[in-house]
Amino acid sequence: MIQLTIDDRRVTVAEGRTLLEACREHGFPVPTLCYHPALKPYGGCRLCVVEVAQPPPPGDARPRPARLAAACTYPCEPGLVVRTNSEAVQRSRRLTAELLLAGAYQSPEMWALAKSLGVEQVRFQLPEADNCVVCGLCVRACQEIVGVSAISLIKRGMAKQVSPPFEIASAACLGCGTCVLICPTGVLRLEDVSGYRSAHAAGAAEAREYCQTCSELDLEPHFVAAPEALLAAAREGTGL
């Protein structure tokens, strides 16, 4: 068992727990977005930040400086001093929620969450807002629960998005709908695309690029329907 202090209260939790689990177990509310109890913690949305201070070393009573850390990924350590709702925590959550809205200001779910954290206005909006907050829940559910990894988070930075490989219908997708159910903003859709039922982001079909040279859909590989044929050809080519 591990002892730590949350909002001035001494609590005891089992070894191996995260701060978020400790907080919830002992009734300290902490907002989350990218966390799901059935999935490995991710630490992407940063709404669950709390103030964490290391215990002072023996013989030194001065408190250590506190830093903000995501509760969902921080492992409980003996003697930690945690604040779940300090001024700094609130300020950070408020601005983070406002930033989340920048790309999802049409989502009622996100507005409700942001309002509960004190957001009143959105000062910055992304022109290409598509309501996806890149929390990665769908991708992790597909990988960890369904076990097929039909979709992933592709590209990086601002361009990061949820997509099946090659941004076309995925051959691996079972059409189980787990991703659609877990999505906090309702942006994912499940549709019959070119013969497959496949998960994809709403509006993705229109957004696909056409190749400047051949005016065919860019990156659309022909082998997706029959990967076996490609592999056979490859093996033959190398003589393996």
Partner: peptide, 21 residues
């Protein structure tokens, strides 16, 4: 080439989505 991603996914036993990422 797209084929390379599929071949790599096969060779390393990784989901194609991960290789594409």
């Amino acid at each position: 080439p797209p084929e390379a991603l599929l071949l790599a996914s096969e060779r390393f036993g990784l989901p194609l989505a991960q290789v594409y990422a």
